[in-house]
Amino acid sequence: MEIARHWRLKQQRYGLVGEVCPHCDYKIFPPRDVCPNCGDEAKTQYAFSGKGEVFSFTTIYEAPTGYDANAPYTVAIVKLDEGPMVTAQLTDLGDQPIEIGMPVEMVTRKMRNDGDERGIIVYGYKFRPFGFVPQR
């Protein structure tokens, strides 16, 4: 059981809450204490829009414990519109082909059980193809 850990990360997991550096305005995700751009201390919260594009991706057939029930699944590095990149599963793909550069949006999904089915359900961000939403 790692409930405290999952609980601690809920803002990142549910809302892509990272940081904006108060010194150089660099957008940071995941949050960290030292800005990777200017080296100053960063702690101002910043919620990312959840929009981005696929930097690269692959499919996992032999999954680690806790994820094997969902295999095969696709994992990508997503470049967020605000700059940083994030590792995340792609979901809701159906039969849709994936391409580098494809626009995606964040959704909140079940990640795994904490331990087995008696443990809490861990929820977090994944990304899915963006585009069926009517454009304004």
Binding site: N70, T91, D92, K110, I121, Y123, K126
Partner: peptide, 12 residues
Amino acid sequence: GLDEDVITMSIE
């Protein structure tokens, strides 16, 4: 989908 339930669907 495999990763959906009433919580994730309600969130969306």
